[in-house]
Each structure stands twice: as C-alpha cells, then as structure tokens.
Design a protein around this nucleic acid. Structure first.
Lengths: 157, 157
DNA sequence: ACAGTGTTGTTATGCTGTAACATTGTTGTG
DNA sequence: CACAACAATGTTACAGCATAACAACACTGT
C-alpha cells in the first residue's frame, strides 16, 4: 500500500490547523466548511466538487452546487485547499499558513497527489519569469506521471 | 501596442508548418482542421472551444461541439496546439515538430500567452521529480501575471 | 430589540466536454 | 472501375463543471 500511514492523523491535523488559522484571522470555520474540508481530506487524492455534493446529499441534506463551490472558495482563499487545474479537482494543503507556492506530483495510476515545494524549482520559475520581464502573480505547476510506489509495482508486474 | 508585428506572418507560418508536419507524418490536415487552427492563431491569446464553435456557426454551417473538440484533439495530438488548463482554452504552438515541454507566461491584463522553453526550468522540474522518485509523463506549467508591456503601462498610468 | 453583516438555501442558467451512432469522404486493392 | 476498409465529419443527446441572483437564516455588537 502506498505511504502506509494512519490517515486519521492527517485529517485531525488538517482540521486542527484550519481551526487555528481561521481563529487567528477572524474567519469563520463553520460546520459546513469543516465538513467539506474533512471530505477533501478523506485521502491523498484530489476530490471533485460534485463528489462533495453527492456526499453532502447522502448525509441527508439537499445540497446544491453553490453550497459546495462557496465552501471551496472560502477554503482556497484561506489557503487550506488547492485546486488542481488539470483535474478540475481539489486537494487539502498539508501546510496551510506557511506562505508558499505549490507544485504538485500527480500519479496517473493511484491518483495520489503530493504537494512539494522545491526551492530550486521555485527559483527556476522566478528566473524564467524575470528573464522575460514577467511579473508572476499565480502559478500552476502540475506534474503528471507515476509515483514511486506505482513505478515499483509496474516493474514487479 | 504589445509586440507590434505583422501577425499575418505568424498565421501563415503556423499553417505552413502544420501542413508540412502532417504531410511528413501522413496525418490529414483537412479543411476543417486548417480553419480551426487558423482561428486559434487569430492572435496570441488562448481561444475557448465555444468561441471557435460560434465562429464556425457564423461562417454559415451548423457546427456542434464534437466538431470543434475533435479538431482540437487532433491538433493537440500533432503538437500544433496546446491546452491552457488554467483557462480552459487553447493556443497555437509556435514551434511544433520540435519535441519540447511547454511553459506558459499568461498575462492577466492583455491575455497574451507566451510559450517559453527554459532549459534551466525544465531541468529544475526534472530534478524535483527525480528527488521524489516520480516519473513525469506530462507537465502543466502556467504562470499568470503581468507581461512586460502591461507592467510598463501600469507604471506609466 | 434591532440593524448590519456574513452564511447558507434555492432556482435557474451558462460554460466545458463526451458518448454513441449516422453519414460522408478518402484510400488502397483486385 | 468497383468495392471494402477506414478516417473524418454530422447529429443527437447528455454528463460534468461552475456561477449569477435573490431569499432566508444566523451571528455580532449596540
């Protein structure tokens, strides 16, 4: 199994961090936002908005798209969640609060999304922008391929 | 005006290159595909699929989505066009045929998309992947911000 | 209590993309 | 040339992604 670990710890931590950050900033970490953040943290895969919608529906309510998208907007503004543009899906940020630019390694086989922050890579991005006299405001850096575990599985097979 | 140039040259070149490449490969550069590639090259901005659809409709026919998306798929497979994931839009490749990975500088003001290929940046990407034991198959690298011209405009204003 | 603000509910709609099958066009072969 | 095989396009229908606009509710401070 990939990255065998007690995932409940990831979830707990993410929720606790979110709580702390919102507290600090005076933002309201409401029940809905908490539930949705928790759903996103069900695993280390990116989650689709309409899957969240379905889950909300299953929990009894009659949720509509804006409910989900508003929660996602909030979570993204607070830096608790990132959008993976190449998947139209959302993933929890493992280190919110730290100012950082995100780079993602997305396994096409097991779908695990790993957020990395390579200083070298960030510097290369800045250098490329600078040399074109371009002022970066936002960056999307998503690498698709096979993660370590799935590569080994492929070899073994 | 940004990058003042005779844009008809860009278009001619792109179409000629496309013709040549498809010839070489035995792919069919049909009239439809040619028309759509030409539309995409109307400027140095990324173009939306449904705008292409509208243009086709204006040209008389009754075009439907699959017509456009199939042409786009073809053009992307041949490396003549790239998709900008963060915009859900498509842009012509200025140097098809060369095997390359693409990195894009996207101006949020004038919407110009510039494709760059920084060796340093590519190497940094590979290094980041390698150090995570990750095998890249596809990369999305899109930098949003202000291009050189728009920055100067901002200062002047 | 009440005004003001922020959050959520609800309805409707727009944008993005594809599945599945019918029709037409192109190419190579006898 | 006729015809089979395949590629390209047309057509219908629908699935998936996202937002505008307004209504209702909840929380805050006075």
């Amino acid at each position: 199994m990939a990255h065998s670990h007690d995932h409940t710890v990831c979830v707990e931590q993410a929720l606790a961090e979110a709580e702390r950050i919102c507290e600090e900033r005076g933002s309201r970490f409401t029940d809905l936002r908490r539930r949705i953040l928790k759903m996103i943290w069900q695993g280390h895969k990116a989650v689709k908005a309409y899957d969240l919608l379905d889950q909300l529906a299953n929990e009894g309510g009659s949720a509509k798209p804006p409910t989900v998208y508003r929660a996602l907007d909030f979570l993204m503004e607070e830096g608790l969640v990132h959008k993976i543009e190449s998947l139209n899906a959302y993933i929890g940020c493992p280190h919110p609060g730290d100012s950082h630019v995100s780079q993602f390694l997305i396994c096409d086989k097991c779908e695990t999304v790993k957020e990395v922050t390579s200083r070298t890579l960030s510097e290369a991005v800045m250098a490329a922008a600078t040399s074109a006299d371009f002022a970066i405001r936002r960056q999307t850096l998503e690498l698709h391929g096979l993660c370590s575990n799935c590569r080994q599985g492929a070899k073994a097979a």
